[in-house]
Design a protein around this nucleic acid. Structure first.
Lengths: 208, 208
DNA sequence: TTGCCGACTGAACACGCGTTCAGTAGGGTG
DNA sequence: CACCCTACTGAACGCGTGTTCAGTCGGCAA
């Protein structure tokens, strides 16, 4: 009964269109008129529903937060490491992640809230996994968590360039698999060789 | 005709002011009038010198590219790993790095050029170090390089949030030291405990 | 002198932005 | 019926943007 169809569909579609626009082009580019056009209504109607553009963005934030909340909980319940790659594999969640990435770059209240949330998730997640003996501990857990978080978020923030190098969408299942594998590999096998190695067999097996 | 006579100082100061504004607030916020005001001249003078705002930004790009070129070469000559932390420690270079970070996020030609350059630097750097036996090789060197690049660039892209967590500027010498140390630690000592059974794949077991 | 040219400015233009306002249509309720 | 509330629209306002235009000032050459 709760989620039947009581809401006027227009307001809902406006939020959805705004989220998509913001995720792909940023808040600045998501003008009131463009959002209205995407749904096929007039610009003042958007203000009628949300009071102002700020209200529209706030509604989008709330929607994204609420939707992603369940996904994060689900992800945490599934255990394993807390990488965002699982989210990128989901087409719907990918839009939300790109939305959050935009918010992170623009230094507004929402971005700050999101980052603090993600940071706490990483920091506490690492601590918890360390307790269970799954990962080691760190001398500087704060900086380590920041770097680990940046490692995952970085690829999302740099998405256009990463996709250009890989020649494939970051949300592709195959790309996500490569991502997970390479990251796990990086964090499992040290990349720096001990400097005082007597004879290092260096078979350059890299592919051109 | 030659540049023996010093350029009219105004043009030079306009570029410098624009770079600073763009680095800190982005191209959009770097209004022609704001740039002009920062130097103490009128807005049309900016257009007189650069033709258009696009020309102004192009001049800034060129300046940043040229200045940073030497720094990268210097850094490469100094050897060691190619982390951006060394750049962040330099006050003047930090502005340039923030400028590049802005360009990377806005998906324009300059950003693409910059990312390709930084990616090649990372990729080739890793390959070269692998040849010298300093680092190991990777099954997926492309993805590994992307992740390593994102790890460094991520902190710069997320600068406001990182600084909020650390409660210190990212360019602080002490922060840079922590950054270098933690990153080296992450890449030297594996964080995941080796799985009990040999040849255990990633926790995610999904086959298309 | 006269003429020219580059640095420089105040006023103003066209455009897109978020926003406001007056007004219309339609459905429920007294 | 009249009344009100909600969804919705076209026209327009104020503002900031990049840009244009006519014109001033000062140094240099003929």
């Amino acid at each position: 009964m709760s989620s039947a169809t009581p809401l006027p569909a227009t307001r809902d579609r406006l939020v959805q269109a705004a989220i998509e626009l913001i995720a792909n082009e940023g808040v600045q580019a998501a003008t009131v008129r463009r959002v209205a056009d995407a749904v096929g209504v007039s610009a003042p109607l958007v203000l009628h529903h949300f009071g102002s553009k700020e209200g529209l963005v706030a509604a989008c934030d709330e929607r994204v937060l609420g939707t992603m909340e369940g996904m994060l909980a689900e992800m945490a319940a599934a255990g394993a490491d807390a990488g965002f790659q699982y989210l990128m594999a989901d087409e719907q969640a990918a839009v939300l992640l790109l939305y959050v990435a935009r918010a992170l770059h623009e230094d507004n209240a929402t971005g700050r809230q999101w980052f603090d949330r993600l940071y706490a998730l990483t920091r506490n997640g690492m601590a918890e996994m360390a307790e269970r003996g799954m990962v080691r501990t760190f001398d500087d857990p704060v900086m380590a968590s920041l770097i680990l978080l940046a490692m995952d978020l970085g690829l999302v923030l740099l998405r256009p360039h990463v996709e250009r190098i890989l020649d494939a969408p970051l949300t592709d299942r195959s790309v996500v698999t490569r991502w997970i594998t390479a990251e796990f590999d990086l964090l499992t096998t040290p990349i720096f060789r001990p400097p005082a190695s007597p004879a290092a067999p260096a078979p350059d097996s890299e592919q051109p």
